[in-house]
């Protein structure tokens, strides 16, 4: 029983970090796949404002995603991380990826390009 995972307690809302411990959002949602009459299969973790907004009110997420997608396709899209990619599970969930190459940094990149680097002293 040592490896028993409680999805809500141990996964949902935990901080996600990449291979190099870069912060890459929180586990905003968990995706299960129903398999006929068998037990559901845990497929992935989802992260993104739309996923989070859906938890407050169904429908809110869809509208938020649509609005964000106008800024950039990958800003609105939730990031889906297969369960198999979890390297380490503790207070944080370490994911086997490079955060900067994922959509977790899409909004960060957008703000940096469109806004932040236009101000002097931004470090760019």
């Amino acid at each position: 029983m040592a490896d028993e995972v409680h999805l809500v307690r141990d996964i949902l809302d935990k901080q996600l970090v990449d291979r190099d411990r870069r912060l890459m959002g929180k586990a905003d949602g968990i995706v299960l796949r129903m398999r006929g009459s068998g037990p559901p299969e845990v497929v992935a973790i989802e992260a993104g404002p739309g996923v989070l907004a859906d938890r407050l009110h169904p429908g809110l997420g869809r509208r938020l995603c649509a609005a964000l997608e106008r800024l950039g396709k990958d800003i609105g899209q939730p990031l889906r991380i297969p369960f198999a990619k979890i390297l380490h599970r503790g207070l944080d969930l370490q994911i086997d990826t490079d955060a900067r190459r994922t959509s977790a940094y899409a909004a960060e990149r957008w703000l940096k390009e469109r806004l932040v680097r236009r101000f002097p002293g931004s470090g760019e």
Binding site: G25, S122, E124
Partner: peptide
């Protein structure tokens, strides 16, 4: 709250959301 990268010691271009 949303798990972004943050830190006042980073340059603004390194944590754009935080600075915005």
């Amino acid at each position: 709250a949303f798990g972004w990268n943050w830190g006042e010691d980073q340059r603004p271009a390194e944590d754009a959301r935080f600075c915005v």
